[in-house]
């Protein structure tokens, strides 16, 4: 009976290992979503309402968003996100920006492409993007681990 128990336990372990490996091979990471919305304070100065959501525990361990900023260049919104690696090793990520108009509708929906970014150990790096046109009042920065 003892022998059978051992077999059952190792069998369950084997099944779990196969399932975990199988899922890991096909899964994608949700990553980080950071949004910024242009607004105005009581004095009429332009401010940015920020919100950062971590969907992946792995990325939360590795990466920190230190700052989100936005300026108007002419009449077009330009944004900068400051990323800091919390890891000692070089890390690779992908990021993309999505842009929304004053009504919250996405501009050029689905046109944003992922861009690679590499951070050396404990490095702080800025990533910048420019809105497609003057309608953009809000952005969403998405960060994920590279495709496997």
């Amino acid at each position: 009976m003892k022998k059978n128990n051992g077999i059952v336990i190792s069998g369950i372990a084997a099944i779990s290992a196969v399932v975990i490996l199988g899922l890991a091979g096909c899964s994608t990471t949700a990553g980080i979503e950071a949004t910024g919305k242009a607004a105005w304070d009581e004095q009429g100065a332009r401010i940015l309402e920020k919100n950062v959501v971590f969907n992946s525990i792995g990325l939360k361990w590795d990466l920190q968003i230190l700052d989100l900023r936005s300026v108007l260049v002419g009449n077009i919104m330009k944004v900068q996100a400051t990323l800091r690696s919390k890891d000692k090793d070089t890390l690779s990520f992908q990021y993309r920006f999505e842009w929304y108009d004053a009504g919250g509708l996405e501009i050029n929906s689905g046109a944003g492409s992922w861009k690679p970014v590499m951070l050396n150990g404990s490095e702080t790096k800025n990533i910048q993007a420019v809105a497609p046109d003057q309608r953009a009042k809000e952005f969403k920065l998405e960060i994920r681990e590279p495709d496997k």
Binding site: G22, G110, P116
Partner: peptide, 19 residues
């Protein structure tokens, strides 16, 4: 589990950065 990863054809992300 393995058959879940067998050869298939599907739409990919046009903005993918996978080299």
């Amino acid at each position: 589990t393995l058959s879940g990863c067998a050869s298939t054809i599907q739409y990919g992300d046009a903005g993918s950065a996978k080299p």
